[in-house]
């Protein structure tokens, strides 16, 4: 396994003590595999991604285990972590508008990790940057390399960010909502680009998104997070076709669907996610779930396995899809 995470927890200081942002997260990722992480805002998906990079806020406490290429990353010193970042593990950010420094040319920013990790000279790195910009299908890579971020469109900037991320041939690319800030047609092309690069270089991709359609089209497996907990995990098709967790089911039902009768209202999930993750006696979804029974409020939900690589964290996992 390229990446094995077990019992990962991230705590952030909050008024009145630590708050658990990510709780008992365990998952793994093989070479060339694509894993989707889906969940609403505040579900802990971005914090999970940042923990992999060692980029959680200074005040955060990270516990558990993150093994990458057989090496433990939790507790690894900053110096060693810095050597991994941008070289073995790279990240693509959500906002291509702000993720590039407005004061440096695009080429210089793409060349930067190459000089840092590969020891390339400035001239060689610039040359390689132009190749990379071509590889992410930017029209006129030479011109793009010379331009400053303001001169590029959102999609072009995101391509430049991807070029910057793949420069050192990382084994793992974390894409945190890479297309959320882009319009739909550009989004499809960017995701296709990431798919193509993954196939070419056998890198693994961790795709963080709140969009189930994006995950469905571009990932092998998916984990569904809610309030810091992984609620369900398994192969993408199985999870989305036949969810075993009421939260996944509710997410699926809240999507607009083509062919729905005119005037039909979208299903919503009643209530709001818990603001603090304090009430951990029971299931965090208990207050909003249609299947809630007494035990949901008192006992933490167990991981119920469905075969070797699929589980749902729910007291009533075996009844989901039948009871409603």
């Amino acid at each position: 396994m390229l990446l094995e995470i077990s019992g990962l927890a991230v705590d952030l200081p909050a008024p009145g003590g630590l708050q658990r942002i990510v709780d008992r997260a365990s998952f793994s990722l093989a070479e060339g595999e694509s894993l989707g992480v889906v969940g609403e805002s505040g579900s802990g998906k971005t914090m999970t991604a940042l923990a992999l990079m060692g980029l959680t806020p200074e005040s955060a406490r990270v516990t558990g285990s993150i093994r990458f290429e057989g090496r433990e990353l939790v507790g690894l010193d900053e110096e060693a972590m810095r050597e991994l970042r941008g070289d073995r593990i790279a990240m693509i950010f959500q906002e291509p508008m702000t993720a590039l420094n407005p004061l440096h040319s695009v080429g210089a920013q793409v060349a930067e990790p190459l000089m840092l990790h590969r020891g390339l000279t400035k001239r060689d790195a610039q040359q390689r940057a132009i190749e990379l910009l071509g590889r992410v299908r930017l029209a006129e890579p030479e011109r793009a390399a010379r331009s400053y971020p303001f001169a590029l469109s959102g999609g072009e900037r995101q391509r430049a960010m991807i070029a910057m991320a793949i420069g050192c041939s990382p084994r793992l690319v974390i894409a945190d909502e890479p297309t959320t800030a882009l319009d739909v047609t550009v989004q499809a092309r960017i995701l296709a680009l990431i798919d193509g690069l993954r196939a070419e270089s056998k890198m693994a991709v961790l795709l963080v998104s709140h969009d189930l359609a994006v995950i469905a089209g571009h990932c092998d497996r998916v984990i569904v997070m809610y309030s810091g907990l992984i609620m369900e995990s398994g192969p993408v098709e199985a999870v989305l076709r036949e969810p075993k967790n009421p939260y996944t089911l509710a997410l699926l039902e809240a999507r607009p669907r083509p062919g729905a009768p005119r005037g039909a209202r979208l299903r919503t999930i009643p209530g709001a996610p818990p603001v603090t993750h304090e009430n951990r006696a029971g299931c965090p979804f208990a207050g909003r779930c249609a299947l809630t029974v007494n035990v949901c409020r008192t006992m933490p939900p167990p991981e119920v396995a469905f075969g070797a690589n699929r589980f749902s964290r729910c007291h009533r996992a075996r009844e989901v899809g039948f009871a409603q």
Binding site: M53, L55, R82, E83, L84, R85, G86, D87, A90, M91, F93, Q94, E95, T98, A99, L100, N101, E112, P113, L116, H117, M161, M164
Partner: peptide
Amino acid sequence: EYALAARAAG
């Protein structure tokens, strides 16, 4: 974000 991106680049 570009400061975070710079850190993510090592």
